[in-house]
Computed example of a mutant assay.
Amino acid sequence: MHSWVDGQPADALSLKDRGLAYGDGLFETIAVRCGRPLLLERHLQRLAEGCLRLALSADQALIRSEVLAYAAVLGEGVLKLILTRGDSLRGYAANPVTSARRILQGSALPVYPAAHAEQGICLFACATRLSEQPLLAGLKHLNRLEQVLARAEWSDAEHAEGLMRDTSGRVIEGVFSNLFLVRQGRLLTADLSRCGVAGVMRAEILCQAESLGIALQVADIGFEQLQQADEVFVCNSVYGIWPVRACAGMRWSAGPLTRKLQGITRALLDA
């Protein structure tokens, strides 16, 4: 399927694009089923927040309409929406009147082993650390070199995902997922005010947990808390929830709270 650039089929991009030159932009990865983009409102809400924080001028209504139109043509798969600040000449200073460039790409849904969801996965403890930068924390911006370096640390089939900490040693997230712990029935996920990506499935799980009356906490997580956890799982908006069964010599079982939330997210992604 053709990519779209600013609403038109295209397979090329200007060499002056600031997304290419500086990673100046944002992106969303959206699962599409039966022509419908899933969790669209959460994706668009995060995108709008990112545009506000990066002072990126973008027509949110136009973005919505293009995503819906592209998803209808794609049918089934993964839609990647990229916003860049558009073209500029040499130098970091941006043209203040330039509107965001809109790029839409489609691909097939990834095929993951059923065992990932059923039996759980092993996490690779990555040496690459996430830099602490509150101005960019939570955003799904185009600067993903830390994730690229972390993902290059393992190539075996045993590990399905990596665990990332920040430069102070706090447990933050997976390479392409968010992380949750369960301890004595309480749900815990990392504070992302310094670094990390505020995933849309993470937001959905927090909302579902609150509505179900599940005790939850967003806070700093030390490595010792990971060791003491009763259950651990990772999540994203494409596969839902994978229980974590092992990491760096630690082992867990897929417990009842993980399974309960996994059922809820599976229903959202199968809808």
Rank of each mutant, 00 (worst) to 15 (best):
V197E: 04
L163Y: 09
G7R: 08
R266P: 03
A94V: 11
L139D: 08
P113I: 10
E210P: 02
V171S: 03
L212E: 14
Q45V: 07
A94E: 06
K16W: 12
D220V: 15
A254H: 05
R85D: 03
E76M: 14
G106R: 11
D24L: 04
L142R: 11
I121G: 00
K80W: 14
A72V: 06
L56Y: 06
G249W: 12
E41T: 11
Q228L: 14
G213K: 02
E41G: 12
I264Y: 03
R165M: 09
R53Q: 12
L206C: 06
E204N: 04
V182N: 06
S237G: 03
Q60H: 09
G213P: 03
A215N: 03
V148C: 05
Q105V: 09
R170S: 09
C122D: 13
A12R: 12
I241L: 06
Q60T: 02
L74D: 09
L109I: 07
G7N: 05
R266E: 00
L104M: 12
D220A: 15
I241T: 01
F27E: 05
V218G: 07
G91I: 01
L40W: 13
G77V: 13
F180G: 04
L216N: 07
L38N: 09
M201Q: 03
L74E: 10
A93L: 00
E146S: 02
S99V: 06
R266D: 00
Q228H: 14
S65I: 07
A100P: 04
K260D: 05
I121T: 05
G240Y: 01
A48T: 08
E231Y: 08
W154P: 03
V238W: 06
I82N: 02
A137T: 08
F27G: 07
C51Q: 05
A100G: 05
L20I: 15
A114P: 02
L188P: 07
H2A: 12
S14G: 13
P256N: 01
F180R: 04
A127T: 13
T29Q: 09
D270G: 10
T128L: 01
L44H: 10
G7A: 09
L81V: 13
I30M: 05
F223M: 15
F124M: 03
V5I: 13
A248I: 01
P110D: 12
